[in-house]
């Protein structure tokens, strides 16, 4: 059972307190959504990278502080490289091998 560092609680807690919440840094189109084709919309809705290696993803401290946060986890070694708060950019050093899409500071940080 993994220990996961919650950036809000600022401590490592057992995995059973957390829930995985999908790939991180996926921009939810709002203003331009009506102009998007179904094809374009499907990229937001359904298509994910399913990456082998460092993967930016969201976790929820469900049985803890109730906060959603971001993490970079290696899907091969199953090790967390870093966790960081929602709306923050992934720390660079940790994600040297990860090609992460730029995170939006506000909104759109899902």
């Amino acid at each position: 059972m993994m220990l996961i560092h919650c950036p809000y609680c600022e401590e490592k807690r057992p995995e059973i307190e957390f829930a995985y919440a999908g790939e991180a840094h996926i921009h939810r189109p709002v203003k331009d959504a009506d102009d998007m084709t179904d094809e374009e919309w499907s990229h937001f809705m359904f298509l994910r990278d399913n990456k082998r290696g460092d993967h930016a993803e969201r976790w929820w401290h469900a049985n803890g502080c109730n906060m959603f946060f971001n993490a970079v986890r290696n899907t091969v070694t199953d090790k967390f490289l870093v966790t960081y708060k929602m709306g923050e950019l992934p720390p660079k050093a940790s994600a040297s091998n990860a090609k992460l899409p730029a995170a939006k500071k506000t909104g759109g940080a899902k």
Partner: peptide, 13 residues
């Protein structure tokens, strides 16, 4: 969870 997710990550303002 659904509500918290959107509140914390989409409707953050």
């Amino acid at each position: 969870r659904h509500m918290e997710d959107y509140l914390q990550t989409e409707f953050t303002d």
